[in-house]
Amino acid sequence: MCAPVAERMSKHMMDVITSDMESKLLSISDQEMDLFSTPYLAQSILVGGFIERLANKQPCLQLTLTHISLDAYRIHTIKEIDALHTLIDMNISNITSMDAQFHHTFQQELASNRVQEIISQSRESLSYLKLKYTGQLDLHGFKLKYLSCEYGAYLSNLDCTYMRSCSITSQERILQSMSFTGKNITHLQLWLGESIDRLCAAFPNLTSLHTLILQGRNLRVALLYCLPESIRKVVYRGGNVSFKDVKSMVEWSKSRDACVRCVLLDCRITAKLTTCNWMKQQDGIDITQCEFKEYGISKDWFISVSWSTILSK
Rank of each mutant, 00 (worst) to 15 (best):
A271F: 06
K24Y: 01
S298N: 07
E109R: 15
C262F: 13
A153D: 00
M13W: 07
I196M: 08
C160R: 01
C259N: 06
R220D: 14
H12D: 04
I75L: 13
T161G: 04
N113A: 15
P228T: 11
L227T: 05
V250E: 00
L26M: 08
M33V: 14
S312W: 02
L224F: 15
C2P: 00
Q136G: 04
V260Y: 02
W278Y: 10
T274G: 00
L84I: 10
F302Y: 15
W278S: 05
D138M: 05
R74Q: 12
Q281L: 13
Q43L: 06
G239S: 07
M13H: 08
A55Q: 13
K57H: 14
D197R: 10
S93Q: 13
R114M: 09
I78H: 06
D245F: 05
S23M: 11
L63F: 11
D300C: 12
H67K: 05
S19D: 10
Q58M: 14
N113D: 05
E291Y: 04
I28Q: 07
W307L: 06
H76V: 13
A111K: 06
S29L: 03
K244C: 03
L110T: 08
V263I: 15
D99R: 11
D82E: 13
L227S: 04
G152F: 07
R217S: 09
K272D: 04
I231A: 08
T274A: 14
M21V: 01
R220N: 13
D71N: 15
S195L: 08
L175M: 13
T64F: 02
G216W: 09
T274N: 04
D138K: 03
K145G: 09
L147T: 02
A153H: 02
N240Q: 07
C60S: 06
Q281Y: 01
G284K: 08
I75T: 15
L46T: 07
G48I: 05
I28L: 14
K272M: 09
C60A: 13
I17F: 00
D245V: 06
E251A: 12
C160W: 02
L273C: 01
R123C: 11
S93M: 10
S69T: 15
Y40S: 07
L84S: 10
G239F: 08
I68N: 00
L137T: 04
T38F: 05
Q43G: 09
R114L: 13
L209E: 05
I75E: 02
Q58D: 11
D266T: 14
R173I: 02
S304M: 03
T64D: 07
M13A: 12
I303G: 01
L110F: 11
T275I: 09
D71C: 14
A42K: 09
I297M: 03
L158N: 01
I28A: 02
N205Q: 15
F243K: 03
M178I: 08
Q215D: 05
V305M: 14
K280T: 02
K247N: 11
S230H: 09
L190K: 06
E294V: 15
S29Y: 00
K280V: 00
P4W: 10
L209G: 07
S37I: 10
R74T: 03
M9Q: 09
V260E: 03
S120R: 06
P204T: 05
